[in-house]
C-alpha cells in the first residue's frame, strides 16, 4: 500500500518537474520560439496566450487536472491556422507505440527467460559463454545501428520486410505485423541480452543458497529442486527484472520509431523537441514517464507480494 502511495507521489513530483523545467524558463523563451525579429507586442501576446504571465502553480494545476482528463491543451503548431489539440495528435500514436512495444515484448520476454534459465543451469557451457559475450556486445549497440543493420540485410539485400513502418488506423493486423517486424526485431535485439543476463543472475543467486544444497542432500531430483525449491524464490526477481526491462523498452522505442518513420509517440516527441512545441513535449514526456514509473512500481509490488516474510508476518504465528 505504501508503495502505491509512493509511486503516485513520484508520478506527481515527476509531472511537476516536467512542467517546471519549461515553466521556470528564462524569459527569452517566447523570443526563442517566435524568432529574433518578433516585436515586443507579439512576445507579450504569445506569453499571454500560453499563459506564461500567470503564476506557475496555477498553470501547473490547470495542466495536470487537464492531463488527468486526457486534455493536454493546444499544440503550438495550431497557431498557424487550424487548431490541433495535443490529445488528438497523441492518441492514435500512443496506440501505435503500445502495439510496437507489446509486439517486441511478446518476442523478447519468453526468449530472455528461456535463454537466461538455460545459461544459469548450464553455467560455463558454450551456451553460457556465448550469452555472456552477446550481452556485453549488445549493451554496446546503439538502437540505430541495429536498426540500419537489419534494414540493410532484410530490406536491401534480402527484400523480406519494409524499411518504412508506415501504418494507419486502417492497416489490417497481418500487414501491421509485417510492417512493424523490423522495428520490433530491433527492440528485441537491444533488450533481450540484458534481460537474459539478469534472469541468469537471479537464478544463480537462488541456486547458490543453502536451502538448495539442503534440498540436494535430502535426495530430491534435479527437476523437483528447480520446480519446487528454486522457482518459488526465483520468479519474483525474474518478474521484477522483466518489468524493469519493459520500462527500458519504452525508451528504446523513441530512436527506433525515428529510424523506421513509425507514427508513434517517440517520433512525435522528437519532432516536437526540434520545433520546441512545448505542450506536445510535456505531454509525451508525461506519458513516457508515467508508463516507466508504473512498470517500476509493478516490479516493486511483485517483489514485495511474493516475499513470504511479508505474506506471512511474524505476528500471524500459529493459527
Amino acid at each position: 500500500m505504501s508503495r502505491l502511495i509512493l509511486g503516485l507521489m513520484t508520478l506527481v513530483l515527476v509531472s511537476a518537474l516536467i512542467f517546471m523545467v519549461v515553466a521556470l524558463l528564462p524569459g527569452d523563451f517566447a523570443r526563442a520560439i517566435l524568432g529574433p525579429n518578433a516585436t515586443p507586442e507579439t512576445v507579450a501576446a504569445f506569453r499571454h496566450e500560453v499563459g506564461l504571465d500567470r503564476p506557475a502553480l496555477a498553470r501547473y494545476l490547470e495542466w495536470i487536472s487537464g492531463a488527468v482528463r486526457g486534455d493536454f491543451g493546444l499544440s503550438f503548431s495550431s497557431r498557424s491556422g487550424n487548431t490541433r489539440t495535443v490529445a488528438e495528435m497523441i492518441l492514435p500514436r500512443f496506440r501505435n507505440t503500445l502495439f510496437l512495444a507489446g509486439f517486441a515484448a511478446l518476442m523478447a520476454v519468453p526468449l530472455a527467460i528461456t535463454l537466461g534459465v538455460l545459461s544459469a543451469l548450464y553455467r560455463n557451457s558454450w551456451l553460457d559463454r556465448t550469452v555472456n559475450a552477446m550481452t556485453l556486445t549488445s549493451i554496446s549497440l546503439p538502437e540505430f545501428f541495429v536498426a540500419y543493420l537489419l534494414m540493410f540485410f532484410f530490406v536491401v539485400k534480402i527484400p523480406l520486410f519494409y524499411s518504412l513502418a508506415s501504418v494507419d488506423a486502417g492497416t489490417p493486423l497481418g500487414e501491421r505485423l509485417l510492417r512493424t517486424a523490423l522495428p520490433a526485431l530491433t527492440l528485441v535485439l537491444v533488450t533481450v541480452a540484458h534481460m537474459m543476463r539478469m534472469v541468469r543472475a537471479s537464478i544463480i543467486a537462488v541456486l547458490a543458497s543453502p536451502y538448495i544444497e539442503m534440498a540436494r542432500l535430502k535426495g530430491l531430483s534435479p527437476a523437483r529442486i528447480i520446480l519446487r525449491h528454486a522457482l518459488p524464490n526465483a520468479w519474483a526477481p525474474i518478474v521484477s527484472v522483466i518489468a524493469v526491462n519493459l520500462a527500458y523498452l519504452i525508451v528504446g522505442v523513441v530512436v527506433v520509431e525515428v529510424v523506421f518513420v513509425y507514427p508513434g509517440v517517440g517520433q512525435l516527441m522528437v519532432d516536437a523537441v526540434s520545433k520546441r512545441d512545448v505542450p506536445v513535449v510535456q505531454a509525451c514526456a508525461l506519458i513516457f514517464a508515467a508508463t516507466y514509473i508504473l512498470m517500476n512500481l509493478a516490479a516493486d509490488i511483485l517483489t514485495v507480494v511474493s516475499n513470504p516474510r511479508l505474506l506471512h508476518p511474524k505476528e500471524g504465528g500459529v493459527r
Binding site: V251, V254, A285, A289, Y292
Partner: peptide
C-alpha cells in the same frame, strides 16, 4: 530524477 527515463 531517476523516476523518468533518462533519454526522455
Amino acid at each position: 530524477l531517476m523516476a523518468m527515463p533518462q533519454l526522455i
